[in-house]
Amino acid sequence: MAFEPKIIGFLCNWCSYTGADLAGVSRIKSAPNVRIIRTMCSGRVDPAFILKAFQLGADGVIVMGCHLGDCHYQEGNYKTIRRLPFLRRLVKGFGIDPRRLRLEWVSASEGDKFALLVNEMTEEIRSLGPLKLSVHHEIQQPVAHH
């Protein structure tokens, strides 16, 4: 079977999730590969969630938030622009291609941008191929294997 990337999207409630909703309401076609988790703010996205997504088999993670200056909570996304680059260093450290972790700003009005990013990310991950981590193997067959 052809490789279908599994991508986890963490979307902020006010801009990006609404933008994704708009994409749907506007019947904009986009790849079905991004599985969305809504958080109130992109600032809520704990780096551990992203690592956990990779551990559980995600081939990519995309975090979307309000444009800088537009945060519903004033400055939540400013924490995100520091967390994600920092986390990207760890992700790289774990030997994962940093292109598998993306941070983008999507406003409530940018349904088309949401669809575009989803398609772009899906294609990029498709070209990178599945993310293979030894931890996948260990988690599936945990204790007393050796």
Partner: peptide, 25 residues
Amino acid sequence: GCGTCVAACPSSAMTGHGFTDAQIL
């Protein structure tokens, strides 16, 4: 309820009503 502090808390002492680590995981 933005949750920025929840993500930032290094000891996970900060949690919330809704959107908890456990729920998101």
